[in-house]
Amino acid sequence: MAPSGEAWQSLEVPTWVCPKKVFDLKLAESSQLFIMKPAHQYSAVMPSTGTHQLLAIAPLLKRYLENIKFYVDHAHAKALTRELFSQLAKCQAGGQLADVPGAEPTDWRLLRTIEKIEQNPSWEFNLQELASYSGASERNLYYLMKHNTGMTPYRFYQRQRLIRVRRRLVDCQIGEPHISRHAADEGFSHLGRFSALYREHFGELPSKTVRGRQRFCSSDVEACEEVEQG
């Protein structure tokens, strides 16, 4: 990252960029970028000019990213995010942050379970097969998932299917995506039930996701046209 007129700096360290600050950004092909936009009440205590590397909040962000991978529903995700912004505001206001405990080593059986569910989109849920693959009994696998992720194995499986539908709706290149078709492709045969699950998990109906994408695409086209005209 290179703010206008400044030297390049690594984004491995959390960096605060003030509104309207112009900068160049280079990312390797396998990079992942995490961008946060605090609400007004939190941004009021953030630096008002330039860019600032924030070493003190690195553990907070790391813990948040670990926890947000397993949010149970939209309300849970909002609670995790509110807590993060609250801690960030406290840090920037000069308050003392509580020590962030280091992450415990993840049970290899849990890692195999997550791998099985995430990397096999066409796999149909079977607890016995999943337990055999993970190396745990069905009962132990149930409690292992519940303790570490807050979700049962089936709930996590269902969550991954919802995420894949959302990605299709967001990435779809046609003007009006077929929500029912994408849902059916991921095993949701009842559209009403799917819509309820989707709203519970993402805080909006799938139709709202589609409209949001359409507004974004329209604004992007308008911005390009303004540049061309200028």
Rank of each mutant, 00 (worst) to 15 (best):
P19A: 15
A39Y: 02
A39P: 02
M46S: 08
E66Y: 06
R63N: 04
K37P: 01
F34H: 15
P59V: 05
F34S: 08
S31R: 00
K20Y: 08
A56T: 10
M36P: 06
T51F: 07
M36R: 14
P59Y: 03
K69D: 10
Q53V: 07
G50I: 00
S31Y: 04
I68R: 03
Q53R: 08
H74T: 04
A28R: 11
V72K: 11
Y71I: 03
L54T: 10
P19K: 15
S43W: 00
H40M: 01
Q41M: 03
F70H: 09
A44C: 08
V72L: 08
Y42A: 00
S31A: 15
I35M: 13
M46F: 15
S48E: 11
L54Q: 09
K69G: 05
A28T: 05
M46V: 07
Q32H: 04
Q53I: 07
S30N: 14
A44R: 09
A56K: 09
L60A: 05
Y64D: 03
H52L: 15
L60W: 05
A39E: 08
N67S: 06
A28C: 04
S43P: 02
D24R: 15
I57Y: 05
F34I: 04
R63D: 05
F23P: 01
D24Q: 13
L55C: 09
G50A: 01
Q53F: 06
P47M: 11
L25K: 13
L27H: 14
L54H: 08
A28I: 01
V45G: 01
A56R: 12
M46Y: 13
F70E: 02
Q53S: 13
L55M: 10
Q32E: 11
S48Y: 05
P59L: 06
L25T: 14
H40W: 02
L65C: 02
P38M: 01
F23H: 11
K21D: 05
L25E: 14
D73E: 01
K21T: 15
H52E: 11
D73T: 02
T49K: 01
T51Y: 05
S48N: 09
V22Y: 15
P19F: 13
L55T: 11
L27M: 14
I35W: 11
T51V: 15
N67A: 07
T51M: 09
N67L: 10
D24S: 14
S43N: 04
L65G: 02
R63T: 03
K37Y: 08
A28K: 12
A39L: 06
P19D: 15
K69A: 07
A39D: 03
V72E: 07
S48D: 09
H74F: 11
D24F: 12
V72N: 04
L25I: 15
V72D: 04
R63M: 02
H52I: 13
H52W: 09
L25Q: 14
A39I: 00
K37M: 07
Q41L: 01
E29Y: 10
E29D: 12
S48C: 05
K69S: 08
L55Y: 09
D73H: 06
L65N: 05
P59T: 04
M36N: 11
S31N: 03
M36V: 08
P19R: 15
S30Y: 06
R63E: 04
L25H: 14
V45S: 07
L25V: 15
L54K: 09
S31L: 00
N67P: 00
A39G: 05
L55I: 10
T49I: 02
N67G: 01
K20W: 04
S30A: 13
V22T: 14
S31W: 01
Y71M: 05
I35P: 03
S30R: 13
